[in-house]
Structure formats: structure tokens, C-alpha cells
Design a protein around this nucleic acid. Sequence first.
DNA 1: CCCGGCTCAGTGGCCTAGCCAATAGGTCAC
DNA 2: GTGACCTATTGGCTAGGCCACTGAGCCGGG
Lengths: 237, 237
Amino acid sequence: MTASEFPARLARVRLYEQVAEQITRWIGDNGLRAGDRLPPERDLATRLGVSRATLSQALVALEVIGVVVVRHGDGTVVTEAATGHARIGEAIRDHADRLPEVIETRDALETKLAALAARRRSDEDLARIDAALAFMAADVDNGGRGVEGDERFHAAVTTAAHSPLLARLMAEISDLIRETRIESLGQPGRPRASLAGHGAIAEAIRAGDPDAAARAMHEHVEMVSDVAVLRPEAESA
Amino acid sequence: MTASEFPARLARVRLYEQVAEQITRWIGDNGLRAGDRLPPERDLATRLGVSRATLSQALVALEVIGVVVVRHGDGTVVTEAATGHARIGEAIRDHADRLPEVIETRDALETKLAALAARRRSDEDLARIDAALAFMAADVDNGGRGVEGDERFHAAVTTAAHSPLLARLMAEISDLIRETRIESLGQPGRPRASLAGHGAIAEAIRAGDPDAAARAMHEHVEMVSDVAVLRPEAESA
DNA sequence: CCCGGCTCAGTGGCCTAGCCAATAGGTCAC
DNA sequence: GTGACCTATTGGCTAGGCCACTGAGCCGGG
């Protein structure tokens, strides 16, 4: 067990998080739409059995992620984004049925990132990409699946693209991507094939060839997509 | 002045937002790094001249966006993402300098959406696209800039792609996109050129040709990018 | 009848104060 | 050296209070 594999620090769940989640679920379950009001804070806090201050924290959290707008003197109003949020939740829950969607989103973002990396990479970026390749190779050579190396490689490419906005969108769906990654690399032979794909991407980036980089990344993401095709059969067996 | 151009509702700035911003700035100005601790809440609240409850709200906000982790009994710790976040904030603030970044993000997302729309569009989707085209054409014919029609067209293409995750990411950056849209369509001749671009995209989608749709969308987004090139000169004039 | 001003009730905003839970560090005993 | 215990510091949450904001309704004047 290496240091990187040590169990993560125990995560305490703060009350505001639980309350925020309850509220989001309640919005979805009750078909609330944009413009609908939540119950007054005093009522809601009593009903949820928490203090008003704690409820207010939860509403801050929900406001920050765009589910509600809190209006002084008026009430707390559901936003249009709230429905979108529910859809994302469903996307995560119905993961087995939504995998192709994650793949196509990865395709959109990561082929662009690879092309930008080919144009913008610094020596430092290339060193980081090479280090990730070496790390994954060592893991795969030792019989591992290369999950962390895969992660590092893609993060290095994203960094080399020097596009904070795209990086942010990647971060937004990072949990979903992680799942496709783990499933892909769990297939026999996939780690090594994935490593080869990374190699081709890195070559194109080093060569400063955006089109080649985008093509290599597209093929790499499609390889993950092959898993999506195989998996339904494995489940019915 | 149409309904869509009415001034937005006056935005009240809550204290927690100001405090959160102050803290983020302070982290940046003082070169705090991942793992560094903020001062204790009681101290920090006194120094900032707010109550601890208000500071706690600000920290909830910062925790939700990933700038800090709040540890019970230990303190509030800066995350790795904090530095990245400062860059995003700058990206938004320095909009004039960051426009190319929005463009490249649009390019990534919207060319994929156009390709998917070509594959997946229903008759209803096509009708919606056509309606948006007609709406924008009428607006432009009447001397308008076609902002709303442009918006409707892109929304219709996004809907026709039937990819909720990509649609979500589009929604995520919708404010930034709106700004590029308004600036682009404000240039003489752009509304009509944009309308022609839309026509080509719609044709490819109707024909069910993903590559042509992606190419047409790419060219359309690049046309917006031309504005980005022109604009710095307009500012120095 | 319509519009503007005022009032009231309901709502959120923020504060104060208090006490408990969690954490880290230090000390002591085995 | 290790484990248990204690202490100081830190955050977590509650309760209560008062003020600011908002929307709706009412009244008076034109």
C-alpha cells in the first residue's frame, strides 16, 4: 500500500450539506419549477429540525451552485438551473445508461484540449506529460491498472492547453469521467492500449500538431467508448 | 426597448459574498498555498468586522466552490484549487483579454453539439431550428441585431443534440457566451453573416451530415472570433 | 377610475451569546 | 517507545433578537 493509496481522511458531513441535499431532493420530488418559492426560512428550519442559521448556510450553498436565489424580504426562489441540476443527478444515477453521454462530452472537451495543448505546451508541460506517462507505465508494468497515471496524463494535457475555462468544465464532470476511466482500465489489455494511446497523443503534442493531437485523443476516447458497448452484455451474463 | 432588454433586477450583494471575495483576494495577495490555514474564525470575523455566523456563511460558499476545506476543531485550509480559482476569477474580470478562451470553449462544445444534432435531430427539432432562423431573419430584416434569434437558434441546436450533459455545460457558461454573442452581432453586417452561418448549420443538420454540421459550426464560431481580433483595436482608438 | 404614497405583515439579514464537538499537541505512566 | 489522558484551541450549531427589505392592500387626490 503506497502513500497515494492510503484511505482518504475521514470526511465529516456537515449539517448544511445534508440540508442542502434534502432541499434539492425535495425540489425535484415536488416538481418545483423556476420561480417557485421555498417555504419561509423559519418554517423550513423548524420542519427540518435545524436552526435557522444552519438552514441559511445550506441556502448559501444552494445559491452558490445556482439552485436557488435568496431574496431579502421576499423568499427563496428556485432557479431554472435547478431542473438542470436534477438532470445531472439522474445522469449520475442512471450511469449505466448514460455512459455514452459522458463519452461524447469527453470527446468534445478533450479533443479540443489536446489540440490546444499541441499549440501552447511549454517545456514544463511536456515534462509533466512525460512524467505521467512514465508513472502509468511503471504501474501497468507492475500489474496495476494505471488509473492514477491515466488521471495524471489527462490532467497534464489539460494543464498544457492553458485554457482555464475548459479546465473548469473538465473539473465539473470529473466524477463522471473517473467512472469511465476506472471501467475502461479494468478491462484486460486496456491499460496497455490506453498507454499506447497516451503515447500517440503526447507525440502529437510534442510535435506541435493540433490536428494529430485532436485525432489521437478522439481515438483514445473512442476506445473508452468501446467499453460502453461491451458492458451491457457483461451485465446480462 | 424590448422585454428581453429590460435592465436586470437590481442585485443586492449579500455580506457573505463580499466576505468570500475578500478572503479569496487575501489568499491570492498573500501567496497562500494548498494546506495553509486561514486565521481562526473568531479572529477573522473580528478583523473583517462581521459576525462569526456571517463569516461561516462565506466559508460555506468558499467550500462549495472548492477554495477551502473547513475542518472542525482544526481550522480552515486552503485547497489546491484556490490558485486555479483566482485564474478563473481573473478570466471573467479580464473579459476583454479572455474572450478567445470563451471562443475556444464554444468551439469545443458547439461543434460537437452540431454533429450530434445532425445525427439525432427529430422533426420537432428541425421545426424549432427553422422557427429560430425565421425569427432571427425577421428581426434582422427590421434592422435589429438578431440577438434573441441567435440565442434561440443555438438553443435549438443544443436541444437537437439530445445530450443533457453537454447542454448543462453550455448553460454553465451561458453568461460568457451571451457577451460574445452581443458583441459579435453589434458589428455592422454581422447579423446577416451570422444568419447565413446559421443557415449552413441548419442545412447540414437537416441533411444528417455530422461532419458538415461540425465544420459549419466551427466556421460560425470562428466568425465570432474575428470580432475578438478586431475589438482590441477599437478600444485603443 | 387611476395613480401615488403610506402602512402593515411577512420575509430574510445579520448580530450576539452560549455551549458542545472535534482536533492537535503535550505530558505522564507503563 | 507507545498509549492514554488532559488541555487549549478551533469549528458547529442553537437560540433569540432586532433591523432591513418586499409585496400587497388601502386611502386620498386628481
